[in-house]
Every structure is written in structure tokens, then in C-alpha cells.
């Protein structure tokens, strides 16, 4: 069910560069983990509502007031590369 092509596709979605040997290993391991998940098929859940969080709290709001946030200089200082007020990244489009 899961093959190397699918593993490569998922790795791309996850922005993970995998080596050929990692692709092989992941294909085997994900295969056996997904097989293990099959046992959930024993349960009939057609009329069951999903639980998104165990203890439900919803619609938490607060007044829309300005608050002191983390210092901008400090945030920029811990970035791998920065230019003035910006985070610097490699070029987005290839030539």
C-alpha cells in the first residue's frame, strides 16, 4: 500500500529531504506502522463524534488591547540571517 513513490511525495509535503536509504527504511517502517493502525477498523465509529481535545474549552476571548510583546531586536538577533528589519532567506525563485 505504501511504496517509495508515496514516501517521496509525503517527504516533499513535509519539506524533508530524505536520502535513498532513508526512503527505503521509511517505506518499510511506515508500512508496518500503518498495518498496526488497521486494528482500528475493528471498531464501528459511524455514529461517534470526534474528540478534538480531551477537556473542551471554546471561544476564549480577551479584550483587544495592545500588550507588550517580545522585543523585536531580540527576535531578529536570534535569526540565522537578517537584514535590517527583515529575516533574510535564500532566493525564492530559481533563474
Amino acid at each position: 500500500m505504501i511504496d517509495q513513490e508515496l514516501v517521496k511525495k509525503v517527504a516533499h509535503l513535509a519539506r524533508l529531504e530524505l536520502t535513498e536509504s532513508e526512503v527505503k527504511q521509511m517505506t518499510t517502517q511506515l508500512g508496518s506502522i500503518l498495518d498496526y493502525f488497521e486494528q482500528l477498523g475493528e471498531l464501528d465509529v459511524s455514529d461517534v463524534q470526534p474528540t478534538t481535545r480531551a477537556i473542551d474549552v471554546s471561544n476564549i476571548t480577551r479584550p483587544d488591547q495592545l500588550q507588550v510583546s517580545v522585543d523585536r531586536e531580540q527576535m531578529l538577533a536570534i535569526a540565522p540571517d537578517q537584514d535590517g528589519d527583515f529575516f533574510r532567506v535564500p532566493k525564492i525563485l530559481n533563474n
Binding site: E17, I78, A79, D81, P90, N94
Partner: peptide
């Protein structure tokens, strides 16, 4: 981008993400 490790030898943004995470 914002903190932590960044892979050195990436020539575009997408490959920087994938290499950094790898």
C-alpha cells in the same frame, strides 16, 4: 528562517527548508 539551525548550501528557499529539516 526565524531561529535555530539553517542548512548552509541551499540555493533556493524550498531546498533550504528541506535541507535544514533533514
Amino acid at each position: 528562517v526565524k531561529y535555530g539551525l539553517r542548512a548552509k548550501d541551499a540555493d533556493n528557499l524550498l531546498s533550504m527548508y528541506a535541507k535544514t529539516r533533514a
